Simulated assay, not measured.
Amino acid sequence: MSHAAHGPNWPARIGLALLAFVALAVSVTLAVTIGEMAIPFEVALRALGNGLFDLGLPVSAIQQGVIFDYRLSRALMAGLCGGALALSGAILQALLRNPLAEPYILGISAGASTGAVAVLILGVGIGGTALSLSAGAFVGSCAALAVVALLSAGAGGASDRVILAGVAASQLFNAATATIVTTLASAEQARGVMFWLLGNFGGVRWPDLWMATPVALIGFAICMLHAKALDAFAFGADAAASLGVAVTRVRVVLFATTAVMTAAMVSIVGTIGFVGLVIPHAARFLVGSGHARLLPACLVTGAVFMILADILSRVLIPQQILPIGVVTALVGAPAFALILYRARNPA
């Protein structure tokens, strides 16, 4: 029954890679053509040619700006964010051997939000630039991981204890964020921060991609290098160690990788829940549980899901943009309930 029984199935892998490319291309195409201003596909192609290669094709200045400077950068950022969060969820679920683990539930997103909000409102960092915002988010995510480690100390690696510690850390950092916003922010700052905390791609521009792209791609490469070690963790940390896995080193590297990816995305677009929870399960359904296949599937599926969710956030309510976290929650909450039900009633 194993597809890998006689070595790599290269035709199948090439077919999956082509399918992934087509899915990404279609989702990005939809993202740049669908919106309050409907733009024909051929016009979008001309605008992309002008923006990427300076072809000088006939496109109005408004359409050129909407497609290249707003919708394309927004779609690419949504793809990077969805892929990075899905990767982070898959890594945490493997390390903790718990189907409910993800950055949002473990408090990493909440900690990153607290760090970013501290930078936005308290001015922590270097002039409030994107780099200092990212640094604040990273410090916050590391602080959340430290709190989770402290609260779950002595649990012997019990994943349920870690999840409960993550919920407590999430509440702690959410309370810290709320305290900063309500006591130190102006009314205008409070409105902007609260909308940002629900996830928002509206402010994304090309410079944001120069930071997010290497973080997502390097994070993906690090995760792929540890794919076999993650497979070993399926049998527990002791079994992984007996197979020659450097358990402590792998855990430190991969927890740090998820913290960096989550912090980078939160610092740019705010907190987005459920992606890291739902997408890894969908990817496992598509390609199985082997991490050499699962991690690329999470990257692509998370990217496509987030791009489509961003399109929905722009078109569900006419002349109004929903926070992206609202859209992902509409999908993620029922999926979360289904995962809980299946965990209680395995079939």
Score class of each variant (00 low, 15 high):
Val215Gln: 14
Ser134Tyr: 15
Ser152Phe: 04
Ile163His: 15
Val167Tyr: 04
Thr129Met: 03
Gly156Gln: 09
Ala149Cys: 04
Phe138Tyr: 07
Ala110Lys: 02
Ser159Val: 05
Ile163Val: 14
Thr179Ala: 14
Thr183Ser: 14
Val215Met: 13
Pro103Trp: 09
Val117Pro: 14
Glu102Thr: 06
Gly166Cys: 05
Leu164Val: 10
Ala137Thr: 07
Ala185Tyr: 02
Glu102Tyr: 15
Val148Asn: 13
Gly157Thr: 03
Asp208Met: 12
Ser159Thr: 03
Pro214Gln: 10
Trp210Leu: 09
Arg191Tyr: 12
Glu188Trp: 08
Ser113Ile: 10
Ala155Val: 02
Leu122Val: 02
Arg191Val: 09
Phe138Cys: 08
Val139Tyr: 00
Leu122Asn: 04
Gly140Asn: 06
Leu122Gln: 05
Met211Ala: 12
Ala112Gln: 10
Leu122Asp: 01
Ile218Asp: 01
Leu197Ala: 03
Leu150Cys: 11
Gly125Pro: 06
Ser159Gly: 12
Asn174Phe: 00
Gly127Met: 01
Ala158Ile: 00
Gly202Asn: 11
Ile105Gly: 07
Ala175Cys: 03
Gly127Phe: 01
Phe173Ala: 02
Phe195Val: 14
Gly111Ser: 12
Gly199Phe: 05
Gly107Arg: 12
Ala212Val: 02
Ile218Ala: 13
Ile105Gln: 08
Gly111Leu: 06
Thr114Asn: 09
Arg205Asn: 09
Val162Thr: 11
Tyr104Arg: 00
Gly202Glu: 04
Arg161Asp: 04
Ile126Thr: 14
Phe195His: 13
Leu145Pro: 12
Met194Arg: 11
Ala130His: 05
Leu120Glu: 00
Val181Thr: 07
Gly219Ile: 05
Ala146Tyr: 10
Gly203His: 14
Ala144Trp: 12
Leu120Pro: 00
Leu145Phe: 11
Leu172His: 05
Val148Cys: 11
Ala144Val: 04
Ile218Gly: 06
Ala112Met: 02
Ala176Tyr: 00
